[in-house]
Write a protein that binds this DNA or RNA. Structure first.
Length: 423
RNA sequence: GGAGAGAUGUCAGAGUGGUCGAAUGAGCCAGCUUGGAAAGCUGGUGUACUGGCAACGGUACCGAGGGUUCGAAUCCCUCUUUCUCCGCCA
C-alpha cells in the first residue's frame, strides 16, 4: 500500500511510475488526493467539537465538586448538540477513510527506476545466464514420464486421494524432496538466515498484510469453518511475524527463512504447459525473507539474488536471471528478479525462484517500522525470495540428468539423498 | 467442548465514574559524580492522526468492536485471546 503523503508530494512521479507498471486507472491518484483533503478537513472539525465536548465535561466535573449543581445542570444542556456533531463528523470521517482505503489498496507498488517498460513476459530483461544447456539424446523423456518410469512421483495416486496437482512422492522421489529441503535450509543457515517454522494457515489480517487479500482471494484455499487461509508461500506467515512491530534500527537487517508446503488454487491454469511438476496445487518451498533498512534494501536484493544463484550453481543447473518488466511484475513488488532453469527435455525455461524488494509497500500495510535512538518510527523495507521452490528443480534435475543408467544426483546433494542414482 | 479468572505503557504492576495518557518500581537514554566503572542523584523516556514556519497546541488509543453517561481504563453487551480446572486427544 502506497503512503498517501508520498502520493500527495510526488503526484507526477507516481503517475509516471504507475504507467511503467501498466496501471489502468491513473485517475485514482487524484481521487485519492481529493479524498485525503476531505479527510483532513473532517478530522479537524471532529477534533474541534471533541475538544469542546471534553472541555464542557471537565467544567461540569469541577462545578459538581464545588457543589454548584445548578450551573452544572445548565452546562449539561449544551452537551447534546456537541454530542450529535461528534457523532456526525465521526461517521463522516469513518466513511471517508473507508473510501480512501478502498481506493488506495487498488494502487500497485511503484516500480524501481531500473524496471523495464513492458507488458508481456517476453519483455522481461535477461540480465545473466549461466551454465550449459545439456544435449540430450533423442530418446530423452519429459520428467512426468521419468517419474513414472522410475516410480518416484505418482500423479494418479495423488489425484485419487486429493485431486489433480497433488502428487504423491514415492521412495527415492520422497527422499529427494526431503534432501532438497534440508539442503536448502542448511545453505540458508550458513548465509545467515534464522530458520522458522510458521503455521501454514493464516488469518485474514495476515493475508492483507502481505497483499494476498483482498485482491488475490481466489488463489488461496480457504478453510471456511475457521476463516483461515492455507498459505500460498511462507512469505505470508514469516513476513507477518513483524506485523504491528517496531524494531530497533540496529537489529536490521532481519533475516529469516522457512520451509513450508505451499498451496495454490491456480484457478484457470490448465493444459499441456502445466503438466507434471510444472504447476501444482501443493508444493514445497524454502523461502528467505529479509527486513531491511530503506537505504540498503537494494544491496540486500542483490545479495539475495546472488544467494539463490549460488544454490542453482551447486545443483549444476543451467539458469538465467530476468529482471521483470513492469507489466509482468507482481502487484506489490518494486523490483523482481526471476530465476529460471533450463529444463532440457521440455526445452523450456522454468521459473524456480522470484526475488523481490517490496520497499515499504508491505510494511505500510503491516505497520512494520524501525526506530533509531533519536528518530521517529519509519517504515522498513521487506524483501523475499524462493530459495528454492522444489517441483521445478526436481523437474529440471530429472530431465537434465537423465542417462541410460538412470538419473544422476548432483554431487552437492548426495550427502543429503545418500544415493547417487535414481534407477 | 463445559466452568471460572484475567487482558493496562518496553517489562512488572496500581488504578472500580471526573483531579488518568495513566501511580509506583524496573529497564532504557542524557546529565551530574568518578582516573574509569558501579552505586547514588537529576531530568527524560508510547503510537497515530491533525493545526502551526516554528515555539507550541488539539484529537484518539488501557485486547477489539458496540452501548450507557455531561464525562469511561473503570459500568453493560458482543467478540478475540491467555491462564486454571474438567472432558477429549497426537
Amino acid at each position: 500500500m502506497l503512503q498517501v503523503s508520498y502520493i500527495r508530494e510526488n503526484r507526477e512521479n507516481v503517475l509516471e511510475r504507475l504507467a511503467v507498471k501498466n496501471f489502468k486507472q491513473p485517475e485514482l491518484v487524484d481521487e485519492i488526493i481529493t479524498l485525503d483533503d476531505e479527510r483532513r478537513k473532517t478530522q479537524v472539525r471532529l477534533d474541534d467539537v471533541s475538544a469542546q465536548s471534553n472541555s464542557i465535561a471537565k467544567q461540569i466535573g469541577d462545578l459538581m465538586r464545588q457543589g454548584e449543581k445548578e450551573k452544572a445542570e445548565s452546562l449539561k444542556a449544551e452537551s447534546p448538540i456537541l454530542k450529535e456533531q461528534v457523532k456526525t463528523y465521526g461517521e463522516q470521517l469513518a466513511a471517508i477513510e473507508e473510501t480512501l482505503q478502498s481506493k488506495i489498496i487498488v494502487l500497485p507498488n511503484l516500480p524501481h527506476h531500473s524496471v523495464p517498460k513492458g507488458i508481456t513476459p517476453e519483455e522481461n530483461e535477461v540480465v545473466f545466464e549461466h551454465g550449459e544447456k545439456p544435449a540430450l539424446s533423442e530418446k530423452a523423456l519429459p520428467h512426468w514420464e521419468l517419474a513414472a518410469k522410475y516410480d518416484i512421483i505418482d500423479f494418479e495416486l495423488g489425484n485419487k486421494i486429493a485431486g489433480a496437482g497433488f502428487p504423491v512422492y514415492k521412495g527415492k522421489g520422497a527422499k529427494l524432496q526431503r534432501a532438497l529441503i534440508n539442503f536448502f535450509l542448511d545453505n540458508a543457515e550458513v548465509a545467515g538466515y534464522r530458520e522458522m517454522q510458521p503455521p501454514i494457515v493464516v488469518n485474514e489480517a495476515s493475508g492483507f498484510g502481505t497483499g494476498q487479500l483482498p485482491d488475490k482471494e481466489g488463489q488461496m484455499y480457504h478453510v471456511g469453518i475457521d476463516n483461515l487461509y492455507l498459505i500460498p508461500t511462507a512469505e505470508v506467515p514469516v513476513t507477518n511475524l513483524y506485523r504491528d512491530v517496531i524494531v530497533k534500527e540496529e537489529e536490521l537487517p532481519i533475516k529469516n527463512c522457512a520451509y513450508t508446503p505451499c498451496f495454490r488454487r491456480e484457478a484457470g491454469s490448465y493444459g499441456a504447459h502445466v503438466r507434471g511438476l510444472n504447476r501444482l496445487h501443493q508444493f514445497d518451498k524454502v523461502e528467505i525473507v529479509q527486513i531491511a533498512h530503506p537505504d540498503k534494501s537494494y544491496d540486500t536484493l542483490e545479495s539475495m539474488s546472488q544467494y539463490v544463484q549460488s544454490l542453482l550453481q551447486k545443483l549444476e543447473l543451467p539458469y538465467r536471471v530476468l529482471r521483470l518488466c513492469g507489466g509482468d511484475m507482481s502487484f506489490a513488488s518494486a523490483l523482481t528478479y526471476d530465476m529460471e532453469t533450463w529444463c532440457a527435455a521440455q526445452a523450456r525455461w522454468l521459473e524456480v525462484s522470484s526475488v523481490s524488494n517490496f520497499e515499504t509497500y508491505q510494511s505500510n500495510r503491516l505497520k512494520l517500522r524501525f526506530k533509531s535512538k533519536e528518530g521517529k518510527p519509519q517504515l522498513a523495507h521487506t524483501l523475499n525470495g524462493s530459495a528454492l521452490a522444489l517441483p521445478r528443480i526436481v523437474a529440471t534435475l530429472l530431465e537434465n540428468n537423465q542417462t541410460e543408467k538412470g538419473i544422476k544426483i548432483p554431487a552437492a546433494l548426495v550427502p543429503y539423498t545418500k544415493f547417487e542414482w535414481i534407477d
